[in-house]
Design a protein around this nucleic acid. Structure first.
Lengths: 164, 164
DNA sequence: CCTAATTAGTACATATATGTATTATTTACA
DNA sequence: TGTAAATAATACATATATGTACTAATTAGG
């Protein structure tokens, strides 16, 4: 399980070779990448037995987190951070599996409504215990105070990225 | 540019529906995903004019950050967080572009050495100013104290993930 | 030595993601 | 109204990523 140390050493060498290279920002960005890849892989491994992958999980959870269990494709893309072109394929798969249903919207006939089916809700509730356990495990090294601090800083970071 | 707020509202609803759902860990993980996607997309957009993409950039920078400008495929895969199967394809592309060179190792003939060429170094030094500017911009909302704090917390997080 | 187990690297099939173009509908406003 | 611009969704071609299986070389144990 690759540690972060060698990466940091490489950034130090980079900085020697190109002194303008901003070391600390680079370390932060690499840490984000490093953590993301790990989290992504862990989630995929945990979800495999349920026959879904990480992006599909994200879509299901976005619908589960919506009062009506319903979103339009564009809203769903935005919510899950997927490019809209991906949504068609992913929602096709989820439809084939019977986890969501497509309906034409009658308020605006360009739109389509995507709704969790009863089976979709049942599927979510079947894997949620595993998801909860994974989340708890992933953050288990952080004190509550650390978590609050980290959340605050990541939100600040995220807000800055959006400002551009 | 999708804000993080709706995501957080959805997590709150999820938590109402499934009270065991650990809200704060989930928020942290989603923030990581959110930031990663943004950083990844920004980097790709910035690198496009140079004819390389984010993964290729990572590989080049790993070699640039190594004293000898040389790594074996497995080391490179580990350093860049890529699956080893990806390395063949990515290094093929970089070879085709003349940015790196392949040599058989004579210490262990199973191994291959991947070395930055002079053109590779020149290419890196041509885009480094843009990379530096992007990095500075991305963290520009954070005070130095925030950055140090964030680095400390992300390292703690990363270390915990590796412990599993 | 010499055979079994291990390691490095890669090829190929498959899965996943993205960009661009197309169709259908709605909205704005001349 | 009626016509141009905008929006939603998708299809399709292309790009990117991953898993599995294979070859070649090395190492370990008898």
């Amino acid at each position: 399980m690759s540690s972060f140390l060698p990466t940091e050493q490489r950034l130090a060498i980079t900085c020697q070779r190109h002194p303008a290279f901003p070391l600390e920002p680079a370390v932060l960005i690499r840490l984000i990448k490093h953590i993301y890849k790990r989290v992504h892989d862990d989630a995929n491994a945990m979800l495999r037995p349920y026959g879904i992958n990480h992006p599909e999980y994200n879509l299901l959870m976005m619908l589960y987190g919506t009062a009506s269990y319903t979103l339009h494709p564009t809203e769903l893309a935005d919510a899950a951070g997927e490019k809209s072109a991906n949504i068609t394929r992913l929602t096709n798969e989820l439809c084939d599996k019977g986890l969501i249903a497509r309906h034409a919207s009658d308020e605006d006939r360009r739109k389509v409504s995507l709704t969790l089916t009863a089976e979709g809700v049942a599927m979510i509730e079947s894997f949620l215990p595993d998801v909860c356990a994974l989340l708890e495990r992933q953050v288990s090294g952080l004190h509550p105070r650390d978590m609050a601090q980290l959340e605050r800083l990541l939100k600040k970071f995220s807000a800055q990225l959006e400002r551009e």
